[in-house]
Design a protein around this nucleic acid. Structure first.
Lengths: 136, 136
DNA sequence: AGTTTAATGCAAATGATTTGCATTTACATT
DNA sequence: AATGTAAATGCAAATCATTTGCATTAAACT
């Protein structure tokens, strides 16, 4: 199973919570909150604890298996599998529906900004908000 | 005083907490957390309460006097005066220093994305992260 | 299989933000 | 200028996402 490879490659023990969470995130492939992950987990294995979810997410972030792209206005953080692509989302302010944006237009922008500010730029966040066709 | 105009223009009662918070945000002109605002307030008037800070910020957001541009990884939200400019920041991951980015390169990008997705785009967030010259 | 060390479950703690309620204050009206 | 009223505030307690301490369990090495 691919999930197991990712774990062993990162020197992480292969445990049920880790495999299952990774599996969920792989298949969903869009940002989920810790609680959303927890609810999906509950359908698979009732015994997995919410604090385990947080701890697993923490380890995954450290190992760059996932990223925490943003914290929404409701104060909940989101987590998404890290395919080392630059992904950005357009989020409906009413129904929270997310649509992926095809292209990330910042590569060249970052380069010129590094020269200008003398920062070393490691990362960026970009999200768009609007009203989706259904909610209009 | 300009702060009073902004309040009355928005049909808001002119109170000391509101005037003072607005004054702070006007002069700082960069994102502050509720607690940072509270600490600055304490130096001016010990009696103003943290929950009042939150309530004032909430009203200001509703009236679009300020915006809540992002929530940092430490789960603290930031608030900035809304001059209806598109402002974005480059944030040092070590010292949290913020540098304003001169230009917002998304206007045309948003237009084409609206056609593509059929969303009505109302807003966006963009932050860059890196290491500042001092921290390197 | 046995040993070791890290991962987990559970319950309690934490910390940012929110809320209920009694009191105070802004401001419209007299 | 004094008064009435609804909205704003201070204070304490509640809430909610996230984190942590600790006893137990389980992965993976020998």
């Amino acid at each position: 199973m691919e999930q197991i490879n990712i774990l062993t490659q990162n020197g992480l023990k292969v445990t049920k919570p880790r495999v299952t969470i990774l599996n969920i995130l792989e298949h969903v492939n869009k940002p989920l909150t810790a609680e959303e992950i927890y609810l999906k987990l509950q359908k698979i294995d009732k015994s997995i604890n919410l604090s385990t979810v947080y701890r697993v997410l923490e380890v995954f972030i450290k190992n760059q298996i996932i990223t925490k792209p943003f914290i929404k206005d409701d104060n909940k953080a989101s987590f998404i599998i890290n395919h080392h692509e630059h992904k950005h989302f357009l989020i409906c302010s009413k129904c929270q529906k997310m649509v992926e944006i095809g292209e990330c237009p910042f590569k060249t922008f970052e380069k010129s900004l590094e020269k200008e500010t003398n920062f070393t730029i490691t990362n960026h966040r970009f999200e768009l908000f609007g009203i989706c066709p259904n909610c209009k």
